[in-house]
Design a protein around this nucleic acid. Sequence first.
DNA 1: ATAATATCGGTATTACAATATCGAAAGGTG
DNA 2: CACCTTTCGATATTGTAATACCGATATTAT
Lengths: 208, 208
Amino acid sequence: MKKISKQAMARLPYYLSYLKDKKSKGIDFVSASSIARDLKLNDVQVRKDLNSIATNHGSPHVGHNVKNLIKDLESYIDVNYEKRAVIIGTGSLGKALMSYDGLDSYGLNIVCGFDVNKNLIGSSINDRPIYDIKRLKEVIDNQNIDIAILTLPAYVAQDVCDILMETKIKAIWNYAPVKLRVKDDVYLHNENLASSLTIIYKHLKKED
Amino acid sequence: MKKISKQAMARLPYYLSYLKDKKSKGIDFVSASSIARDLKLNDVQVRKDLNSIATNHGSPHVGHNVKNLIKDLESYIDVNYEKRAVIIGTGSLGKALMSYDGLDSYGLNIVCGFDVNKNLIGSSINDRPIYDIKRLKEVIDNQNIDIAILTLPAYVAQDVCDILMETKIKAIWNYAPVKLRVKDDVYLHNENLASSLTIIYKHLKKED
DNA sequence: ATAATATCGGTATTACAATATCGAAAGGTG
DNA sequence: CACCTTTCGATATTGTAATACCGATATTAT
C-alpha cells in the first residue's frame, strides 16, 4: 500500500460513502471522472487517490469496479477491525460524543467515559459507564484501549495528557483548544470546532 | 484587515485560547517566538498570522500586548456578534450538537432543531425546540437564521440542501459525508468526523 | 557606554498538494 | 472497419502554505 497525504486520507470516507450509495443503486462500475464530477474534485486527484489504495486498475471507458473499490477502501481504512476508545471529560461535548453512534460503522467502539465530577461517576450515557478519572490507567491498560478522546477544559488537558503518557494508549483525539505534548509513539490528532466556525464566520461577514 | 488562508484561520482559536490563559495568569506581554514554542508552530508562521490580524505591531524583546491581541482576535473572528444557527436532523449527532454549549463563547446561538420524525417534533433538547422540517423556510426566513448545521443521513442531504437554497440562509456546516451543490452566495463548509478517524487509524496500524 | 541577546518584520526558498497536459487503450458509432 | 469519445495512468507544471534566512531594533548585562 502506498503512502498518501493527510488530505487524501480525509477524502477516503467521501469516496466510500459515495460508492456505497452507487452500489445500493445497483451500479457496478464508476469512472474516476464521474466521481470527480459528483464530489466536485479534480479527476486527476481522484485517480491518484484511487490508485494509491486500489488493488485493481480501472479500465478505459469502463471505470472501476464498485464492489472491489469499496472492499479496498474498507481494508485500507481498516473499518472491520474494532478500535477501542474512551471519552475523557463528560461535559456537554463529551456527553454529546458518547451519545453519538455514527462512527460504529468505522469500527470505533467507545467503551466508557471518565470524569472528576462525583455526581456523574457511576452513571452512564448511551449504555456506556462513566468512571472516576483516577481509574484511567487501570481501565486503559486492562481493557486494551487504543484511542483517548479528550473533551475537557483547556486548562486540565495537559495534566490528563501526562497521565495518559503512562498508559498503553496509542492515539489521542484532542478536542481541547490546546496543543499537547505527547511521547513520540503516541499519535495526536487535534480537532477544533471553533476552527471551523472561524472560517464560516469570515464568509458570513463578506456578504454583510 | 488582510486576507489570510483557511489554515491560518483555523489556528486563530488556538491563539485566542492560549492568550486568554496567559491573561488569566496575569501575563501582559507575549512574544511570537514563545507562542510558537508552546503551540508547536513555526515562529515565522505565528508572526505572519498575528501581523495579519493585529492592529499593533509587537516590539523586539517585549513581544505583543496580550490584551490587545485578544481584542484583535475576537474582533477578527467576530465572536461578539450573535450568529443564529439551526440543526437539521436530530439523530444522534444532531442531538449531540444541540446539547453542546461550548460554542456559545464564539457567539453561536443554536436556535432550534428540525426533523421529520413525528415523535421528536414538538419535543426539545437543551431548551431548544424541535420543529417539523416542513417549517424550514418559514423559520429560517422569519428568525434571521444565518447558519444551517446539517446532521442528517447522506441520502437526504442534497434534498434538504435544495430546500435551503430557497431560503435566506448564508452558510451551511455540513456533517453528512457528501459534497453538496449550493448557490454561489451560500458558503459551504464540510466537516467529517470519519476523515479524522481515518487519519488516526492509519497511525494505529503503523505500530501494530 | 558598549556588547550580547532576544525578538521583530520582510524577503527568499523549500516542500507539498492540486491541477494541466499527454499518449495509450477500450468501447461505441457511422 | 475506420473514427470518435471516454477514460486511463504517467509526467510535467502550477499554486499555495510552511519555513529558513537576514538585517533592524529594543532591552538587559557588563
